[in-house]
Structure formats: C-alpha cells, structure tokens
Amino acid sequence: MSLLAVRDLSVAFGGIRALDAASFTARAGAITALIGPNGAGKTTLVNCVTGMVRPDSGNVTFDGRDITGMAAHRLPRLGLARTFQHLRVFGSMSLLENVMVGLHGHVRTGMLSSMLRLPGVRRTERAMRDAALQALDFTGLSGRADEPAGLLPYGDQKRLVLARALVGDPRMILLDEPVAGLNPAETHEMGGLILALRARGVAVLLIEHDMSLVMRVSDAVVVLCSGAKIAEGAPGEVKRNPEVVNAYLGGGEEFGLHA
C-alpha cells in the first residue's frame, strides 16, 4: 500500500525546470531511497513534499490525503516528519528540549492557557518529557539529555535530529542526507538506526548520496535525473539499469563503487 504518492510534480525556477513531471510512490513501513546525481531535483522534490515549495503542477498525497502546498507545520500531525541536511538543531536548548519541540505538532496548548498555566499544560509538559526521553533512549542519547545541543559533536547532532523527528510517532520520516559528514563507524550506526525505525513500523524516505548505505537498507530505490524519474525498483535492479549507470557516469559521479 502506498503511503506517500507524488504525481506529475513540476516546478520551474525562472525558466529552469527543477522538476519535470516527477512521479513515485513510497510504501508504508518500507525504506524508499531517493537518489540521483547533483542537480537532479532531489532537494526541490523534498521541498515540495514538505511544504516548503509549492509546485507549479502535480500533487502530493500522504495517507490518501492531498498535502500539496500544505504548510510545513501541519505535516507532523498527519504523521509525516522530517530531518534536514543542515540539521537545524536548536543550539541554545538542551537535547531533551530539542526533542520535546519535536512533539509540538501534537500538543494543543495555546498561548493563553500557557500563560495561565492551566493544569492541562502541566500534564502535557510531563507527557512530552517522558516521550522525549524515550526517543533519546532510542537514539542512544538519553544519558546527555540535559546537555546543550549546540555543543554536541556533529555525529550526535545527526542522531538528535532523528530523535526529534521520531518522537511524535510518525508514519513516515523523510531523512535528508542522514550520513553526510559522518565517518564510516557513525554511518554504519546510523544505518542500524534507520533499519530499527522500519522495525518499529515507521516508513522512511531516504535522500542520500552514500550508495553503500542506500544498497544496504533500502527496500526500493527511486532514481531522479534532470527533474524526472528515470528508474524505480529494488536496489539490485536499479544498480544494473543501464540508464541509471549512464546518468551517473554522465554526471561524473561514481555510482555503485562501494556497493
């Protein structure tokens, strides 16, 4: 069953077609990797799915619901969470607070009730705290819950943003280059976390350049080139697809070298 469906998405920026009728689907509970050479339109696609860019045409549905152009802050509540390539950690706050913010889409306290500190606010706060600690536990960071996030090493920050995305118990997490900048050991560990997410029933949409990771964890791979999908299938098939090999060689990138 497809959880996320992208249909005929097109976006142009000042005459340059970033996306040209791109379509693909991602199944519930599975890991779908979205790959492609630089400039293939991955970032634009991510921005369309996450409400940062409104497409010129086409639509995005999540769990049967049209989310095209929906404001980004409404998505977590629908069960679609994300991480950023550039982390976007809340540097002045503790790890625990970072992850608690990740639950914000699920809390129903307004500014007025917060100022009056109604009993509901306190209850919510306690529940958020417990959920956040569990999410930190999952990523192996619970021992440092009260440390300031800004001082955390880069590799740990990558796990922190994962905890922040999964704390709201989403149906799908969009991971934007989760291992970029990590060393091999950290990359391996992150791969384990991604598989653990799937084991919990969370679908993953993985945008990644590290082909060995993609080949290791993905159930399905979607290849994007020049704003359009050129291949889709199991990792093994896609790797042998001549069009894909050509796209990568033409783009000057080494594909499947470590796979």
Binding site: M52, H73, L75, P76, R88, S92, M93, G105
Partner: peptide, 13 residues
Amino acid sequence: HDSEPGAEACGVP
C-alpha cells in the same frame, strides 16, 4: 529563535 525552518518542521506554526 534558533532555527525557524527547524521549528516549522517540528509542527510549530
């Protein structure tokens, strides 16, 4: 204050 896109993605309007 720390990151507007980050907050937005966490469900903060």
